[in-house]
Nucleic acid binder design. Structure first.
Lengths: 266, 266
DNA sequence: TATCATTGTGTCAATGTGACGCAATGATAA
DNA sequence: TTATCATTGCGTCACATTGACACAATGATA
């Protein structure tokens, strides 16, 4: 076992070294993507965060953009590598480009501990702007993965987030704000809930995103008039108290609403 | 006169040559900003477009980001250089990064006609992603300026836009969509109208942005409850028919609404 | 079998919205 | 000078939406 760890550690080092050395010829300079991955579990919104090797700082999963890769594709690739999911809801929400947002010492320190010396002109130490994406994923299907640069990859409650590296707290807040806006204009839930769900579950999701209590009866009325739900003939099994009906999304109408948005306003 | 043009043309060439040669050491690689500048005039929304020297293609005013410059600052600088205005409403709305969005032949061709040979490894010919900003400006105060790379800089009706270079039509459309969304949630007009304006003028602005007719009486009722307007005691001078009252924005409440947004939704 | 948290359904008043009426105004035409 | 008429200011009305709350039905647990 010890040997395996050592071997994998050596392999990891070679991989990292390769990226440090060859990154400049593989990746688009100056540009990265960062993903805010939202999941819903136990009536709570959660975000997937990494803890970085060597420095133990927390951060958003991110990555670089290949020379010939679209931004969206890069974000999708990061998600794929990180949580093993494809075909999820992904949305670009903002780009962050303060000149001092990168923490250059971070890479130097981390690489040093990895046993890699990094030239001060190395591409990794240049300034980066980052394009922020947020993803909505089905918590239950996610398999968080640790990679060579991180020691953990796990979910955090929105209410008890750690301090994040660089400007990642800012990025996360902006993602949440955007999500809170979106929920007013387009349906949300298809990517966060299981296929079949109850009205109280859907309501809890909305409450978690908006961080605010909603009236049970008014919520049901309002969500139903959007016409994106199908009421099933089954009720939830194995619950205490009265069993609530199950619903599922009417995918066709859901996607239509995603595209056109709810009205409201002018 | 002939000599002056020749001189300025030579100076321009030297400037451009300097940027081509030194750009890589001055600018952040791979990143540009593009600005969609909206103005309101003659009851119509207009956009400021450039016509490029040598190729005669139309495009959005844009620029590169200095090595140590924030993205927002770069956009502000472009506006400042282009229309001589500071202190305007500027908002980042999306970032565009398809790998094939840049037209490499464009630069080669343009530079060739300028008499500048450009190496195929030159930074200008690399792939760029661009951060889109839209600006709302007071049409009457704008002084469009032609620079060394363009032959014209002028306003176009939204309804009769020319075909733009690269993906600029797409960028412009996205900016307009964003603006149409924003108008539902935050006040708009302070940066597009003169200090004093009439209710019909404000309505025409909304109609131009939304590209849709609004009922005069309902519009007034709705806009007034937002509480961002101050009704003045004067009426518009020198108009045919009944003189409408003048209004101005209540700057304090306007900014408050800008920050908090109108409610609506959950 | 009684209890009780939870669900399904509905009511009601207050507010917001869309469609439209009508008199006042004041430049222009007769 | 007076009549005309496009435009403005200020409403009304029916209808939809919203927030707050009532009450009976359900069905696991005590």
């Amino acid at each position: 076992m010890r040997i395996l760890i050592l071997l994998s550690s050596m392999a990891a080092k070679r991989n990292i070294e390769s990226i440090v050395v060859n990154g400049a010829s593989i990746f688009l300079p100056s540009v990265s993507v960062d993903c805010v991955i939202f999941g819903f579990h136990d009536n709570d919104m959660k975000v997937l965060l990494l803890q970085m090797k060597h420095t133990d700082e927390f951060g958003l999963p991110g990555g670089f953009v290949l020379k010939d890769e679209a931004l969206d594709t890069a974000a999708t690739r990061v998600l794929q590598e990180r949580i093993g999911l494809t075909d999820i809801f992904l949305q670009q929400f903002a780009t962050f480009g303060e000149p001092n947002r990168s923490d250059k010492k971070f890479h130097v320190k981390a690489m040093k501990k990895e046993g890699i010396t990094i030239d001060k002109n190395n591409w990794l130490l240049q300034r980066f702007i980052t394009v922020g994406y947020y993803a909505l994923v089905d918590f239950s299907k996610v398999i968080p993965r640790v990679d060579e640069l991180s020691v953990s990859c796990s979910w955090f409650h929105l209410q008890s987030l750690p301090t994040l590296m660089m400007d990642h707290n800012h990025i996360l807040n902006k993602a949440l704000e955007t999500l809170q806006q979106q929920i007013n204009h387009q349906p949300i839930g298809y990517n966060l809930l299981p296929q079949k769900f109850t009205m109280p579950e859907l309501q809890k999701l909305y409450e978690a995103i908006l961080n605010k209590q909603l009236d049970r009866r008014n919520f049901q009325r309002k969500i139903l008039v959007y016409g994106i739900l199908k009421k099933l003939k089954e009720v939830k099994q194995g619950v205490a108290h009265k069993a609530p009906f199950l619903y599922s999304f009417d995918v066709k109408k859901y996607n239509q609403a995603l595209k056109n948005g709810y009205t409201g306003g002018w």
